[in-house]
Design a protein around this nucleic acid. Structure first.
Lengths: 96, 96
DNA sequence: TTGACAGGCAAGCGCAAGCTTGCATATGCT
DNA sequence: AGCATATGCAAGCTTGCGCTTGCCTGTCAA
């Protein structure tokens, strides 16, 4: 459960989540290309792979192997723990 | 906006938010005591103070000085950016 | 005014995290 | 079989972060 907050703490990993929401089921190479093009991220393939491991262990990305390819899907379910933990509205009640 | 994710990445800062939700308007000393008692956090006063700076710059904690005291309020509004950015439900549609 | 109390500032340490590099494994095509 | 493709593994480096330590500032009461 601690992995969730660590996972979304990195801007590159957040961009990966954005990309997967935009187009689900991408492979590692596909992700690397689109991250470079659309998000200006110049990290190596291994770096992205390590990010995906973190996202997977947090449950935010679901992986499915198919031959020599590895496809990734976004899963936003773990994020609900955040809005359930803290109220999203301002807690400070209006007082003079 | 990047500060939000960094702020909730640390378990001690998350405990501080929990504490402020539980009892709003605490001072620094009060927070240190309750964090030690209820959450088993043995960090020094300076450490907690630095955490509060991070939370404040993320907009998650609102500060109000009163004499020599400094009171802290929880503000959950910035958290809404998370649920607005990614869908909380599973994105992978059932297939096969 | 003196002293106690609440908090701030800044330098330094140790560890974890992100990234790179180099090599290894596995799948598919010809 | 042989080679290119797609990904995995592991060691090493560097930066950032959380924390401590020591001293300074500001506020209130006696």
């Amino acid at each position: 459960m601690d992995e969730l907050y660590r996972a979304i703490a990195d801007p590159t990993r957040r961009a990966i989540l954005d990309e997967l929401v935009d187009r689900d089921g991408q492979s590692l190479f596909e992700l690397c290309g689109r991250l470079t093009m659309k998000h200006g991220i110049g990290s190596s393939r291994q770096a992205i792979s390590q990010h995906l491991e973190v996202l997977e262990s947090a449950g935010l990305v679901i992986v499915e192997r198919e031959g020599r390819y590895k496809f990734h899907w976004f899963n936003g379910e773990p994020l609900s723990a955040i809005s359930e933990r803290w109220p999203a509205h301002a807690h400070r009640s209006a007082e003079s």
